[in-house]
Amino acid sequence: MAAIEYSTLVALVQDHPGVLTKAAMLFRRRGYNIASLNVGHSEVPGISRMTIVVEGRGPHIKQCEKQLYKLVEVVKVLDLTEEARVDKEVALIRVSAHSAERAEVVGIARAFDAEIVDVARDSLIVEITASPYTIDRFLEVAGDFGILELTRTGVVSMSRGGNGAK
């Protein structure tokens, strides 16, 4: 099975009510599948930054970028897919860990530069900030112990070098 290809778009948007709804509706009605969507403040007051990871590559994504631009609140859209970039995501993972297994889970977490942020009798919460790929690998390994709960923020992306998205 061919792996699904993804594109990473960054949209700088005016921080108005309803902007997230408008962007989300646009993706839905034009048939784009969102893998993750993250919104937060940017360096400019009043401008939020969305990182959108969407299924597909090529002209289909170019059209998506143009449609995003048509939203009046959208100030700028960057396609980082082909750019050298930093992709980071935070995951909180509750891993099943009885006392006998605890040290082993802690050891794996350390190997991934993850932190143990909560310890209970039968489980640990691991916080990992990494690329989605690294988080996936951690989940695969931690899966042997049993993953009781998982939450991921979705990716935030920034291109490497230069002066940013001015």
Binding site: P17, G18, T21, M25, R29
Partner: peptide, 16 residues
């Protein structure tokens, strides 16, 4: 109605 009119208008506003 501003929830409804999003995809059928160029822009919409709910005046607070």
């Amino acid at each position: 109605i501003t929830g409804v009119s999003i995809p059928v208008t160029k822009q919409n506003y709910l005046v607070k």
